[in-house]
Each structure stands twice: as structure tokens, then as C-alpha cells.
Lab assay of single mutants.
Amino acid sequence: MIINNLKLIREKKKISQSELAALLESSRQTINGIEKNKYNPSLQLALKIAYYLNTPLEDIFQWQ
């Protein structure tokens, strides 16, 4: 199971779900699903999230 700190990191950087979704060329619903652990992002999307949040991938997503 993958757990994530996306919501915590996103809020700390003062970025809304909609703003992050626009940067990622994704939907706000996708970001919401990832944050609620209802959806696991593809590797490509996970890497883009890490890039746009300027945060190491392993700080956002962790195996448990």
C-alpha cells in the first residue's frame, strides 16, 4: 500500500488542488483521489508532482 503526504506538503506550499492539477495537466478530482488514497498515481504523474512541489518523491509517497 502506498501512503502519501501530498495534502500536507501541498498545503504547506500554499498550493490549491486546482492549481496543482493545472500544473500537472490533470484534474482536481485526480489530486483529491490521490490525497485520499483512493487513487495511486502513475510513475509519470508521481514524478511530475514531486517536480512541481520541489520535493523528493520519497517524501511524498511511501510504501507501507
Rank of each mutant, 00 (worst) to 15 (best):
Ile2Pro: 05
Arg10Tyr: 08
Gln64Phe: 08
Gln64Ile: 08
Asn40Met: 15
Pro41Glu: 03
Ala46Glu: 04
Thr55Pro: 03
Leu47Asn: 09
Phe61Glu: 00
Ile2Gln: 07
Ala50Arg: 02
Asn5Lys: 07
Leu47Thr: 10
Leu53Val: 03
Thr55Gln: 05
Leu6Asn: 01
Leu24Thr: 15
Ala50Leu: 04
Asn5Ile: 07
Leu45Lys: 00
Glu11Pro: 02
Ser16Thr: 13
Leu45Gly: 00
Ala50Glu: 03
Ser18Phe: 11
Leu20Ser: 02
Leu23Gln: 09
Arg10Trp: 07
Lys14Arg: 12
Asn32Glu: 15
Trp63Lys: 03
Ile15Lys: 04
Thr30Glu: 10
Ile34Asn: 02
Ile3Arg: 10
Leu24Arg: 01
Arg28Thr: 15
Leu20Phe: 05
Tyr52Glu: 05
Asn32Phe: 05
Glu58Lys: 12
Glu11Leu: 13
Asn32Ile: 14
Lys14Asn: 14
Ala50Lys: 01
Ile3Leu: 13
Ala21Phe: 02
Leu47Asp: 04
Ala50Tyr: 05
Tyr51Glu: 09
Lys48Glu: 06
Gln44Leu: 09
Ile34Thr: 01
Ile34Trp: 04
Tyr51Pro: 00
Ala22Tyr: 12
Ser42Cys: 06
Leu47Trp: 08
Ser26Glu: 15
Leu57Trp: 04
Ser42Glu: 05
Glu11Cys: 12
Tyr51Ser: 07
Ser42Asn: 08
Leu57Arg: 01
Ile60Asn: 01
Asp59His: 11
Asn32Lys: 12
Ala50Asp: 01
Glu25Ile: 08
Ser27Gln: 06
Ile2Arg: 10
Tyr39Gln: 10
Leu43Val: 10
Met1His: 06
Ser27Val: 05
Lys14Val: 05
Leu45Glu: 05
Gln62Met: 11
Gln44Cys: 15
Thr55Val: 12
Leu23Arg: 09
Gly33Pro: 01
Arg28Met: 13
Asn40Val: 15
Ile2His: 08
Tyr39Ala: 09
Leu45Cys: 10
Tyr39Trp: 12
Ser16Lys: 08
Gln64His: 13
Ile15Trp: 06
Lys38Met: 14
Asn5Leu: 08
Asn54Ile: 07
Ala22Ser: 12
Glu58Ala: 12
Leu53Met: 05
Ile49Val: 05
Lys13Asp: 02
Ala50Gly: 03
Ile15Leu: 13
Ile60Ser: 01
Ile31Asp: 00
Asn4Asp: 04
Glu25Val: 09
Glu11Phe: 07
Ile3Met: 12
Tyr52Thr: 10
Leu24Gln: 00
Lys36Val: 10
Lys36Pro: 02
Gln29Asn: 12
Asp59Tyr: 10
Lys13Ser: 09
Leu24Ala: 12
Leu20Tyr: 02
Tyr51Val: 07
Pro56Lys: 10
Ile2Met: 09
Ser16Gln: 04
Leu43Ser: 05
Thr55Trp: 04
Arg28Leu: 14
Asn54Arg: 09
Arg10Ala: 04
Gly33Cys: 15
Phe61Asp: 00
Leu20Ile: 03
Glu35Tyr: 04
Ile15Gln: 02
Leu53Phe: 08
Glu25Cys: 15
Thr55Gly: 04
Lys48Asp: 05
Gln17Met: 09
Leu6Ile: 03
Ala46Gly: 07
Asn37Gln: 08
Leu45Gln: 06
Asn4His: 03
Gln62Arg: 11
Trp63Leu: 04
Met1Tyr: 07
Leu6Val: 03
Ser42His: 06
Leu6Pro: 01
Glu11Ser: 09
Arg10His: 02
Phe61Gln: 00
Gln29Phe: 09
Leu8Val: 14
Pro56Ala: 09
Pro41Tyr: 03
Leu53His: 00
Ser26Trp: 07
Gln44Asp: 12
Tyr51Trp: 10
Ser16Ile: 06
Leu57Gln: 01
Met1Gly: 04
Ala22Met: 12
Lys13Asn: 11
Asn37Pro: 02
Ser26Gly: 07
Asn5Arg: 09
Gly33Met: 15
Gln17Phe: 04
Ile34Leu: 06
Lys12Thr: 11
Ile34Ser: 03
Leu45Ile: 08
Tyr39Arg: 10
Thr55Tyr: 05
Asn54Pro: 01
Lys48Gln: 10
Ala22Leu: 12
Ile31His: 02
Lys38Trp: 15
Ser16Trp: 07
Ile2Leu: 12
Ile60Ala: 01
Ile60Glu: 00
Lys38Ala: 11
Leu53Arg: 00
Lys48Ser: 07
Asn4Tyr: 08
Ala46Cys: 09
Leu23Ile: 09
Glu58Ile: 09
Tyr39Phe: 14
Lys7Ala: 11
Asn32Arg: 15
Ser26Met: 15
Ile9Cys: 09
Glu11His: 08
Arg10Thr: 03
Ile31Lys: 01
Phe61Lys: 01
Asn40Pro: 13
Thr55Ser: 08
Leu8Arg: 14
Gln62Glu: 08
Lys7Phe: 06
Ser18Asn: 12
Trp63Glu: 02
Pro41Leu: 07
Ser18Val: 12
Tyr51Arg: 09
Asn54Gly: 11
Ala46Ser: 05
Gln17Thr: 08
Gly33Arg: 15
Gln17His: 03
Ile49Ser: 00
Leu6Thr: 01
Glu19Cys: 11
Asn4Ala: 03
Ile15Asp: 00
Asn40Glu: 14
Glu58Gly: 13
Gln64Arg: 13
Ile9Pro: 01
Arg28Lys: 13
Trp63Thr: 03
Asn32Asp: 15
Lys38Val: 13
Asn4Thr: 04
Ile49Lys: 00
Ile60Lys: 02
Asp59Val: 08
Ser27Arg: 09
Arg28Asn: 07
Ala50Val: 04
Glu35Val: 03
Lys38Gly: 07
Glu19Phe: 10
Lys13Ala: 12
Lys48Val: 05
Lys13Gln: 13
Ile15Asn: 01
Trp63Tyr: 06
Ala46Leu: 06
Gln44Arg: 13
Phe61Leu: 02
Ala22Cys: 13
Tyr39His: 10
Glu11Asn: 09
Thr55Ile: 06
Leu43Gln: 08
Tyr51Lys: 10
Ile49Gln: 00
Leu43Asn: 05
Ile31Arg: 01
Leu20Met: 05
Tyr39Asn: 07
Leu57Ile: 11
Leu45Pro: 00
Ala46Phe: 04
Thr55Met: 08
Asn4Gly: 04
Lys7Asp: 03
Gly33Tyr: 13
Lys13Glu: 06
Ile3Thr: 10
Lys14Leu: 09
Asn40Gln: 15
Asn4Ile: 11
Ile9Leu: 09
Asp59Phe: 10
Ala22Lys: 14
Pro56His: 06
Lys36Ser: 14
Gln44Ser: 13
Ile31Cys: 04
Ala21Met: 03
Ala21Gly: 05
Tyr51Gln: 09
Gln44Tyr: 11
Gln62Asn: 05
Leu23Cys: 11
Glu58Phe: 11
Arg10Ile: 05
Met1Phe: 08
Asp59Leu: 12
Asn37His: 09
Pro56Trp: 06
Ala22Asp: 11
Ile60Cys: 03
Phe61Tyr: 01
Pro56Asn: 08
Glu19Ser: 11
Gln64Asn: 13
Glu11Met: 13
Lys12Trp: 08
Gln29Trp: 12
Tyr52Phe: 14
Gln17Tyr: 07
Asp59Lys: 11
Ile49Asn: 00
Glu35Trp: 03
Leu53Gly: 01
